[in-house]
Nucleic acid binder design. Structure first.
Lengths: 107, 107
DNA sequence: CACATTCATAACTCGATGGTTATGAGTTAA
DNA sequence: TTAACTCATAACCATCGAGTTATGAATGTG
C-alpha cells in the first residue's frame, strides 16, 4: 500500500482535514457524528474530507451498525517524514561541507 | 519569523512547487532562468511559485544585477517536522499503553 | 542612446475544490 | 412495519488556484 506523497501533501493541505486528522490522532477513534460536532462544517462535508483522508491512507474506517468509526493511521505519515528528512539531509551535508571548507581555510 | 504551518502545508501541496524546492535543496542556489529551464512551465508560473514559497519562508531571494537567485531555507520545514512529531508521539504513546496492557495481561 | 535580457506583475481562462442542501441506503428501535 | 437515526452520495454553486500571454521595470551591452 504505497500511497503517493502527492496524495499525502494534498490531503493535509486543507485546514479542515488537518483538524479532523489531529482529533483522530489525539482523541482516538471517533464516529462521523462525533467528528461533525465541533467541526464547524456540515456532516456531508466531514464525510467527504474523511473520504479524502482515507484515500491518502491517513485514516481507517470501521463500520459498526449504522455508524462508521474512523481512526488515524499515523504510519501513513512516513513518506512525509522521509521527504523532510531528505531535504534536511542535504542541508546538513552542505553545512558539513561548509565546516570542512572553514577548517581547511583555518589551516 | 514564525510562518504559519498552514502556509507551509499549502505551499508544499503543489507538485511544481515541491519540485522547485527540491531542486533548490539538492542543487543549491539557482536563478529564475535556470529553474524555468526544465520546470515544464512558463517563466511567470515559476516566478509565481517562487513567490509563494518565499511567502512561506521556504526560500530566500537575492538580487544580483538583472537576475534573482533563489535558495532553499530548510529551517522553514521545522513546523512541519514538529507537527508530524506531535501526531506520531501520540501514536507511540498509545503503542506504549498497548504494550503495558499486553504485559499486564501476560502476567 | 538603442537594444537585448531577466524577471515580476497584470489580466485572463478554466478546471479543481470546498462548501451547501437534498436524498437515499442501511440499521436500529417502537 | 413504521419511524428514527447515521452516514454517504448526488447535484449544484462559488471561489480558489495554477496555468497562460502580454507587458513593463530594471539592468546590462552594442
Amino acid at each position: 500500500m504505497q500511497h503517493s506523497p502527492d496524495l499525502l501533501f494534498r490531503a493535509l493541505a486543507d485546514p479542515s482535514r488537518r483538524a479532523l486528522f489531529e482529533r483522530l490522532c489525539l482523541e482516538g477513534e471517533q464516529t462521523v457524528g462525533a467528528l461533525t460536532a465541533g467541526a464547524g462544517i456540515s456532516q456531508p462535508a466531514v464525510s467527504k474530507h474523511l473520504g479524502i483522508l482515507k484515500q491518502a491512507g491517513l485514516v481507517l474506517d470501521r463500520h459498526l451498525g449504522r455508524q462508521t468509526h474512523y481512526s488515524a493511521q499515523q504510519r501513513a505519515l512516513a513518506p512525509l517524514i522521509d521527504w523532510t528528512g531528505r531535504m534536511n539531509r542535504f542541508w546538513e551535508a552542505r553545512f558539513d561541507d561548509l565546516e570542512d571548507l572553514l577548517k581547511r581555510m583555518d589551516q
